[in-house]
């Protein structure tokens, strides 16, 4: 531009007062969780691991559907692949269990690449159905592999769970810290991604794919990156789940309700397209499950009713409602201009 316009003095801020407070809260929570086995014994560890992996699955799905516009209902493919890869690496190749969890994530990401070549040809609802079909194909294939127990599945040999830790209590501690690492790691990964330059691209795609392309954002490559990273994390989570469950079968490992529908519930209720949403959604999901644990089928009915009411009253979820009213962000991914 000729005659450079007068630029006022300015400063770009990332953090807000709410986000600084949230950081303190986050650190306190992490310290409390890390020290939990010391002061709370071992009774709650399993529940916290479950919350961690559901939260991590929700963050991954949110990245896919909430940002990249990839509404997948086939993420159970990568939970199942991760779980089976854990069994294959430990039983068939003799890899120690914890490194096998990481390798299982890599295996899921590797298989996600050819999957992407197929499902990325589809758009919208067709993409959603395509991902589900691919997950069913993986389920069918896993059921054919004799070394992994065919359709009836198999148990992890005692020697391998012993390789995690000798005692049952020791195993729970190791699994607890692995679960924490995956949960916190996923949240931090999503946070730093969204905060970065690439996060700007991803947020732009969320808001308008057309306009994102017109300002030079490579939509397809960004989406592929999201899909592969989500598969990596989901595969690791799947491996962790089945390291804890000790028994795997195709029907359980590729279950669309457990590994995708519940996760979608968490994200949609909490607030799609924000990093805070899945936290709130996980709170609601586990809160409802705890309160309604004794009511059998009523639990599913109330879960569904909650989803319908929130979708009607707050299409951007509970976090959308709060963020609109109070203009807050707990994870400082935005940029604010302060003129001086």
């Amino acid at each position: 531009m000729t005659a450079a316009a007068q630029i006022p003095a300015y400063r770009i801020e990332r953090s807000t007062r709410a986000s600084r407070l949230a950081l303190v809260g986050f650190v306190v929570a992490v310290v409390a969780l890390l020290s939990l086995p010391l002061w709370d014994g071992e009774d709650d560890l399993g529940s916290i691991v479950e919350i961690c992996y559901m939260l991590a699955l929700a963050q991954c799905w949110n990245l896919l559907a909430g940002y990249a516009g990839l509404v997948s209902v086939g993420q159970q493919a990568f939970v199942g692949i991760g779980g089976y890869a854990l069994f294959a690496f430990t039983i068939l190749l003799g890899v120690p269990p914890i490194p096998a969890v990481v390798l299982a994530g890599i295996a899921a990401a590797v298989l996600a690449f050819p999957t992407a070549l197929i499902v990325f040809r589809l758009r919208g609802a067709y993409f959603a159905i395509g991902t589900w079909v691919v997950a069913e194909v993986f389920r069918g294939v896993m059921g054919q592999i004799r070394a992994l127990g065919t359709g009836t599945g198999m148990s992890l040999p005692v020697a391998i769970s012993r390789a995690v830790a000798e005692s049952r209590a020791g195993r729970e501690i190791v699994l607890y810290y692995t679960g924490l690492a995956i949960g916190i790691g996923t949240v931090l990964m999503v946070f730093f991604w969204l905060r970065s330059r690439q996060g700007l691209a991803l947020t732009a795609i969320r808001d308008s794919e057309t306009a994102a392309g017109s300002v030079g954002v490579n939509n397809e490559r960004t989406k592929l990156a999201v899909y592969l990273i989500a598969a990596l994390a989901t595969g690791m989570i799947g491996a962790l789940i089945y390291l804890e469950k000790l028994r795997i079968s195709p029907d359980a490992a590729f279950d669309v309700i457990d590994w995708t529908a519940d996760v979608i519930f968490i994200v949609v209720i909490g607030g799609i397209g924000s990093i805070e949403g899945p936290f709130l959604g996980a709170l609601v999901f586990f809160g409802l499950r705890y309160l309604l644990a004794d009511y059998g089928a009523w639990y599913m009915i109330l879960l569904g009713a909650t989803a319908v009411v929130i979708m009607l009253r707050a299409p951007r979820g509970l976090w959308g409602l709060l963020a609109d009213r109070f203009d807050i962000q707990l994870f400082p991914v935005h940029r604010r201009v302060r003129l001086r």
Partner: peptide, 12 residues
């Protein structure tokens, strides 16, 4: 980019 700030729109 509706939910991004005006500044972030230009920044993208």
């Amino acid at each position: 980019f509706g939910a991004m700030s005006v500044f972030e729109n230009v920044l993208a």
